[in-house]
Design a binder for these strands. Sequence first.
DNA 1: CTTGGAAAGTCAACAACGCTGCCCTAAAAT
DNA 2: ATTTTAGGGCAGCGTTGTTGACTTTCCAAG
Lengths: 166, 166
Amino acid sequence: MADSSTQGGEALLFLTDEQLRRGIEAMFFAYRGFTADPDRILEKHSYGRAHHRAIHFINREPGLTVTTLLSVLGVTKQSLNRVLRSLIEDGLVESRVGRKDRRARHLHLTAEGQSLERELSEAQRNRMRGAYRAAGPQAVAGFRLVLEAMMDPDMRRHYQMLKDQP
Amino acid sequence: MADSSTQGGEALLFLTDEQLRRGIEAMFFAYRGFTADPDRILEKHSYGRAHHRAIHFINREPGLTVTTLLSVLGVTKQSLNRVLRSLIEDGLVESRVGRKDRRARHLHLTAEGQSLERELSEAQRNRMRGAYRAAGPQAVAGFRLVLEAMMDPDMRRHYQMLKDQP
DNA sequence: CTTGGAAAGTCAACAACGCTGCCCTAAAAT
DNA sequence: ATTTTAGGGCAGCGTTGTTGACTTTCCAAG
């Protein structure tokens, strides 16, 4: 009876359908803001969000294979392939044949690729910094907790793997 | 000097580039989870996310006009029009000519539309409820604060307008 | 009253990016 | 050595975003 998780009323107000709906709408509207700045930069280069995502994770883990990137992004091969092809043709990404397994392709950003990556991530970090600063450190901790709990287990695995990088 | 916002060091650790990048990746992975369940339901009906968004906001504010819906969704007319046409043809949405202004079309969900809306929002609320429950009320408050700060002003306006609804 | 501009909505054609399915090459297993 | 399995590339399709041209309706200025 004294257990806070079963005492109902005020303690669980944050689980009402209305509160949940507010969260859903907040995710929708915030995600638009989240992608708005990179989208503007990408447009100048005739790229889309898919290019941004590829560039981000190649930068994050240089030398990763196409298959690994596929599972991180959660898309199919062809979806990614079109994007990778244009990035390679444009000289932003380099694809190196594996030394141990010659079927595998290891992906790296070129200097030019790193330059675009910096431009994109700076814009996105600026947005995030503004939001973090406005909300404060305690809110940020909660923000991260809720997002982590919202992920599918597969995605959370990838997220946690990246967590340990330098 | 005693001002916490200028004292540097520990107090601002949450604003390091590394922390910001963690937030960016959390948004990316969490958004996939956020849309995963509705996506599965929509697939059965051969609809996409665009249909879901239209249904959500028509349900939220019955009788809203096409132009209002456009500005809430932040897309162009044709993008929405294709979606609306199929929803109307399939009998999920009704479009009523305005009484005062006969140029305007007021949108409503039919009984069948409401049924799909419930199915979609239940799935999405279940996901959100799980995340909220796992993270706790204080985390939820922070989550909302950060998301609100991340929105573009236009989107935040729409978000706040909806806030006041019953 | 009429006429000209602005606003709401529809439609056509195009680009980005998801998807499935098929194929080739290289590695691994029998 | 031959079959099976895995990594990767390409072709073709559907959804959903875009811009641009068009119709209908409203409203205001002459």
